[in-house]
Design a protein around this nucleic acid. Structure first.
Lengths: 349, 349
DNA sequence: TTGAAAGCGGTACCAC
DNA sequence: GTGGTACCGCTTTCAA
């Protein structure tokens, strides 16, 4: 003999109304019981909570958002997760955002380019903010979001438009530092395997590298496109090594490409790194630290970058009228063993 | 003297009502214009669409979901993305789901164990379905979801409870096949570096490996816990190599651990692989194929697994009463160079 | 085909 | 502190 249904499958979910009836109180009271800091007596809250538990009630956050105008969802657009920098970033961002009471609505930019129709959807979901972490996404999209009044933070890229906030590593300075390291280690023929020309991240690294080479007495590097992809990187290094005067130091615009290049150089061309050729990357993605690679690179500190991203979001949510800030997180040179060392310098680890 | 605001920033987003007024029609008409297959004349639709474009109207999917009872969101819970199998899985799943008109609401299980409070949130968001891809999440959670009437699919794990659908690779058979390979290559002292004992995936692989060893004349393997983590894997291999009779073949319960073990064995202990010791893994995660590792492993085919996951979701959404299916996707042995070869067998690549 | 009106499940303001 | 009620933005009967 039982009074309440024995919780069978697929019952219609209990609503605040059901709970109110069950507890013999108003529906408003139910709402208050689930609103931290609302004006409600302990006795009442107790009573409501008991009824809620009995019915397996769960507040409908979607319905709530309709009136509060906050969904608690942050749209995150990522390109390929094949770049080893992004899985860690995504996980850290999700954790940090969860701690602030937000969840990630994830959008992946399809390979074949045009992500705009999908991005249109992201706005229809009334996300509270958007993080754009795909180098390939048009900045037109960022404008679209800003126009819709949704705060946008560009992660690991910038935009010429002032409306978008952004968080990046020190791309220019990092690449400059790598050029200097290469010069001081006595290399004479630098090369640069580039990412997509329209990616701000790639552009800044290229500029920094060229400036660094020039400043430290190196000739202008050979520049070959690699497109931030494995296939592109292989094609690029193959072309470089086919030259009559192959480079003695190669800077890859991302660790992802650098790892591929390292493997290719060693296992396809039988070269020793760094004795025959030095390879450096950018990011300090996890595999860069693996002993098999021991890649010399420039770190983009994920945790601080994520931290800054969340801060920017919260800032703009609090005061939408404030100007968008562009934050640059300083990185650091990580000297391992894939690049010849200048006199007196020791690798880490 | 203007009638409509000149679209400045942060205007309140236009609603269907605004569009209706602007077009001089009813709000219902606006709704119909944006509902494929609704009963509306071309002229009317045209008129509404024009007004919508003029106001920058975007249908509010959240409000819609309140009445349709479909949010178009699928909750996905992942553990650490450090396991290289998951980023690819997540990307593939997001793409596939997007093609079906669904987006991913992402939840990450915090390191320190208890994910239940966060999981409670996932249900409050009224997701249409849930994918559990974290080995560490309690299956109690899966029950919770089923009880709430939300279809659940376990990815890369199973549960003893019948309520949850699941998709896994052929863990038992794969591990069995690896044991056979090890035996036929002439090894005599097998070891197993295990994952968490309560993970179904680990359990199945262990059972398969033990069975395979027994069936092919090998002694029972030494079993050491590795916890699916890098630190655990290092501790495990260190312990194994300190034994008076160290193993000559080590099966790691995941590629993630196998990669770490390979690096440790080579760079910390100065051993040659596979001449001094054979290492095999499970998953065929991307780094397994990198030339520096050339890891012999058993493939879990991500694409078919994701496909099956989406199919299961769609199935259960269409007929909630149908029994939950447990799908096993067959894998295949991937023979590379981290394990000694049986006579006559050639590595791939 | 079209418009009016009743909700969907909550929150917030209003008196009491 | 509590209950009543308007309303968030949309879909969906129901008549016209």
């Amino acid at each position: 003999m039982h009074t309440t249904m024995p919780e069978s499958h697929v019952r219609q979910a209990a609503t605040a109304h059901d709970v109110a009836r069950h507890a013999g109180v108003s529906q408003s009271a139910v709402s208050r019981a689930f609103t931290p800091g609302a004006s409600i007596s302990p006795a009442m809250r107790e009573r409501v909570l008991a009824a809620a538990a009995a019915l397996g009630y769960r507040p409908n956050l979607i319905a709530r958002s309709l009136i509060t105008r906050r969904t608690g969802m942050v749209g995150v657009a990522v390109g390929s997760l094949a770049n080893h920098l992004y899985p860690g970033m995504l996980e850290a961002l999700a954790n940090r955002l969860q701690a602030e009471g937000y969840r990630i609505l994830l959008f992946t930019a399809p390979r074949d380019g045009n992500a705009d129709p999908e991005m249109e959807q992201i706005l229809r979901y009334q996300v509270d903010a958007i993080v754009l972490a795909a180098t390939t996404l048009s900045s037109h999209l960022a404008d679209e979001c800003s126009a819709a009044g949704v705060p946008v933070v560009l992660f690991n890229r910038t935009s010429s438009r002032a409306a978008a906030a952004s968080v990046t590593g020190s791309n220019h300075d990092g690449a400059y530092a790598l050029a200097r390291l290469i010069a001081e280690a006595g290399h004479r023929r630098p090369a640069f395997i580039a990412g997509p020309p329209n990616a701000s991240t790639n552009r800044d690294r290229q500029e920094g590298f060229l400036a660094g080479c020039a400043a430290h007495g190196l000739p202008a590097p050979i520049i070959v496109p690699g497109g931030f992809s494995e296939a592109g990187a292989i094609a690029a290094i193959t072309e470089l090594l086919a030259r009559p005067e192959p480079p003695d130091a190669v800077f890859c615009a991302s660790d992802h490409m650098a790892i591929t290049v390292l493997d290719t150089v060693r296992h396809c061309f039988g070269l020793r790194v760094p004795e025959d050729i030095s390879i450096v990357g950018f990011d300090d993605a996890p595999p860069a630290a693996w002993p098999s690679y021991a890649l010399t690179t420039y770190r983009q500190p994920i945790q601080p970058m994520v931290e800054a991203t969340v801060t920017l979001i919260l800032e703009r949510l609090a005061s939408p009228e404030a100007p968008a800030r562009q934050v640059v997180i300083p990185g650091e040179l990580v000297i391992r063993r894939s690049c010849r060392l200048p006199p007196g310098v020791e690798p880490e680890g």
